[in-house]
Amino acid sequence: MHLSFHEKSLWVTLLTLVGAFRIYFTAAVQWYRQFAGTAPGMAVDVMPPQVVLLGVAIGMIVVATIVGHALIAIADRRTETDERDALIALKGTRNGAYVLATGVFFALYAALATDGNFIFTHVLLASWVLAQLVEIASQLVLQRRGA
């Protein structure tokens, strides 16, 4: 199976996002369990170490994406995209937008139903990450199926 530059680029972005946010959300769940276990009933807020880890995760994404794209550009000189790629990108964005819109309502519910900003913030962040993954996965499926 021969992948175009665009498909390789999508795979790099997908794997980078999954890797970075898997690390972040694993740590976030552990923090939440730890805090909720030691102070039951207390409002849980986002704390500075979590913000730092999020910054590190975003930094990892930026670096891995740049390195990944440089490597695939060296391996495959045909970096051009066309009208079909644009159409596929639009469809992917549309699918991702549905997920993000749904996630926003879940986040609003979390803001009203839970104390502190931890759950709200992380539901919103997870919605954005999931929307990105759906957008990229949709594009990969459409690239294979035709458009």
Partner: peptide, 22 residues
């Protein structure tokens, strides 16, 4: 034509209808 090989493959396999220009 100025498109990718994957697009030609998709058109040829009747999986994608190109724009009038293409």
């Amino acid at each position: 034509v100025g498109v990718t090989r994957q697009t030609v493959n998709a058109i040829e396999g009747n999986k994608y209808s190109p724009s009038l220009e293409v």
